[in-house]
Structures are given as C-alpha cells and as structure tokens.
Amino acid sequence: MPRHAAFTAAAALVAMASAMPLAAETAPQDVAYDDIGAIAEPLSETAGNPEEGAKIYADKGTGNCVACHAISARTDAEFQGNIGPSLDGAGDRWSVEQLRGIVADAKRTFPESMMPSMYKTAGYVRPGDAFTGKAGTEPLPPLLNAQQIEDVVAYIATLKE
C-alpha cells in the first residue's frame, strides 16, 4: 500500500514536471519542426507582441537581424545589412508557422544558411561564453528565448506589401 502510494505520487510528480514547462513554453530541444522546417505550435503561451519584436529585430544585443537584413520601413535603423534578403513582404511570402521555423533555426528551411540558429543550445564547434572569446558550456542560453521568438515572428508577419 505505502509503496503504491509512493509510486503514484512519484508518477504524478514526473507528469507534472514534464507537463509544466510545456504549458509555459517549449524548450529548444523539444521543438517539433516539420519536414520543411516550420513549427506549427507557438513556443510560448503569451501571443507574440509585434512591437517588442520590432525592437528585438534592431537590437544589437538580442536579435540583431538588422545586421544582415533590411526593411524599407525601418528608417529608424542607421545601418542595415544586405547579407540576407530584404524582409519587405516576408509576411506575404511565409506563413507564421514557417516564419517561426526560420527564426528559431533557419538551417532547417535553408540548408547551410548563414543565418544563425536563434533557438538552439548545443552542437556547436568551440562554443563560446557570449562575446568574451572564452569557452562556454553547452547547453548555451539560446540567442533568443521562446517569447522573443514569438515577438519577432509576430513582427515579421506584419511585413506585407
């Protein structure tokens, strides 16, 4: 009897432990990408906020998407890069699910892409501790967290022509 009770309690705990983070957000290693690299389910519970996303897009310390991309409407950005394509109209070209996949791990949509994987924590060659040049320990914090991914995706989805 006590044994059984202990077992159910433990099982309940395990179930809770694995269910809880899922309810709040999906961890990088648990993201389900489909065969074209898209992610069907939002990574966080709170819907993406396009205004936050617009900030993250241009912020050097977080998204820094502007290092490689340009958006005509972003007259606030002093310098915009041209390594990747212009994102004008990206909201017409891609579904939200596909944008989520591109932002989280672009290499699943564009094999070998130069675009960094924003929601990935391990599998690197000589991973560093941010920009210190010193060794980092995997799993590294992802470049963007789940909510930031959702915010950026919400922002890119507004770019329609």
Partner: peptide
Amino acid sequence: TRYGQLELACSNCHEDHYGDWIRA
C-alpha cells in the same frame, strides 16, 4: 569551419559575402 554559437566560418563572410554589408 563554422565556429561558435553564430556558426560562422571565415568563408561565410570573407569569401561568400565580400562587398556586402554587415550592418555598418
């Protein structure tokens, strides 16, 4: 070799994209 969390090799920037702009 694509080093680091940004997974970028010298070649990504200096062979594939010379003449382009990374921000400024």
